Simulated assay, not measured.
Amino acid sequence: MSAKNIGSESRVSVLVDCDNTSPEILEFALRVVAQFGRVVLRRGYGNHATLANKWQEALVRLAFTPCLQYQYAAGKNTSDIALALDAMEAMFDERADTFCLVTSDSDFAYLCRKLRERGATVFIVGEAKSPDALRNASDQFFEWVPPAKLVPSAEAISIAPSPKEVTKSESPKKEDPKPVGKQRPKFVVEAVALLTGDTVEGKIALSPLGSYLRRSYPSFSPQVYGHSGLLDMLRTYDLLALEQEANGHWSVKVTQKE
């Protein structure tokens, strides 16, 4: 799906097979699906042993609803059935028309096919171990790789304090506030690269880029990073190039400059 479709009002459901993947995949999945529409359902499925510790922290922090499924018999996984039933119910109730299944389990290939037969769009976010049967059953497969390179992107969003934190950290003394230095979080470049990856011209307008960034990071604001606006922010990146279109609007693309 191209970047020009970002502004559509697709209702996205993100359903996570917690028993067969890692909690570190969640943030990547949300960044991927933010380009396709508004996420209306966030659910994580697993047994009592899975939905604890790291999974509990990740689900709570990223506003997912945990769906606990007990094992009624040894060796029987009920989470898969619960996920599949909820996906079909959301489609028939018209609560969602786009589905992102976060899993590497080939058992969900049939669910993907049934959803697509009914007109839904299906994306899979999985690991390298995901079999071809699962990859080919979706409209698009996004492979999550857990290298150390993904860590700076997540950390970049937290280096600048939120407006509430700025207020709390102000000195009780009446001193002139120090100017905030302009910062360049890495995830902005990653967002431009992701959204322009399948476009012919390799660029994206600022309006859909801003919408994507706000969907990926609800607290995102150029002002938090010391910029007057998104255009001012993008001008500080060596890896990005801005172009003004004939209609006066601006677009941005990734360059090969270091």
Rank of each mutant, 00 (worst) to 15 (best):
A82V: 04
L51F: 08
A49Q: 14
S211Q: 12
S2A: 07
S138N: 07
P147Q: 08
S171V: 03
L15A: 01
E57L: 15
K178Q: 13
A96F: 06
Y70R: 02
A154Y: 05
G126C: 03
L15Q: 05
F187V: 05
Q183A: 13
Y237N: 13
P218E: 09
S219C: 00
E243H: 14
E24Q: 15
E143A: 09
R135S: 05
D132C: 00
K76M: 11
L195D: 04
A34H: 09
M233N: 00
L101Y: 07
T121A: 10
F141Q: 09
P23T: 02
N247K: 05
E258F: 04
R184L: 11
F142C: 04
A246I: 08
S207F: 10
W250T: 07
A74Y: 05
Q223M: 00
S211E: 13
R118F: 02
K54R: 14
T167K: 14
T78F: 08
V200F: 06
G226S: 10
L115S: 10
S153Q: 06
H227W: 13
H249D: 14
R214W: 02
L209T: 07
V39P: 09
V16M: 09
K164G: 01
P179N: 14
I124C: 11
Q223P: 00
V125H: 09
N247M: 02
G210A: 09
S22N: 12
T167G: 12
L51G: 04
P179E: 15
K114C: 09
A156G: 15
V145M: 12
L213K: 12
R11C: 06
I204C: 07
L242T: 11
K257L: 08
T21R: 04
A84F: 00
L26N: 02
F123H: 15
R43L: 10
E143S: 06
S13H: 03
P147K: 10
Y70K: 02
D86P: 10
L101A: 00
F28Y: 15
S130G: 04
D93V: 06
S10V: 03
K129C: 01
E190D: 15
V125F: 06
D139N: 15
K178E: 14
L101E: 04
P179M: 11
R31D: 12
D93C: 10
D232S: 15
N77L: 00
L83R: 05
E245G: 00
Y72S: 11
L230M: 12
D19R: 10
R38H: 07
D176I: 12
N247S: 10
E9G: 14
V188S: 02
S216P: 06
Y70G: 06
A148E: 09
A49S: 13
A193E: 15
F64Q: 03
G44Y: 07
D86A: 14
D176E: 15
L111G: 06
N53D: 15
P208I: 08
F142G: 06
V122L: 07
D86I: 07
D238E: 14
A128P: 01
A58L: 04
R135W: 01
R61E: 15
Y237S: 10
P185R: 11
K174G: 02
Q69P: 09
P66H: 12
A84P: 08
E175Y: 01
T78G: 13
W250V: 01
A3R: 02
F92V: 11
R215Y: 02
F142Y: 13
S10L: 08
L83H: 08
K173I: 02
E9L: 13
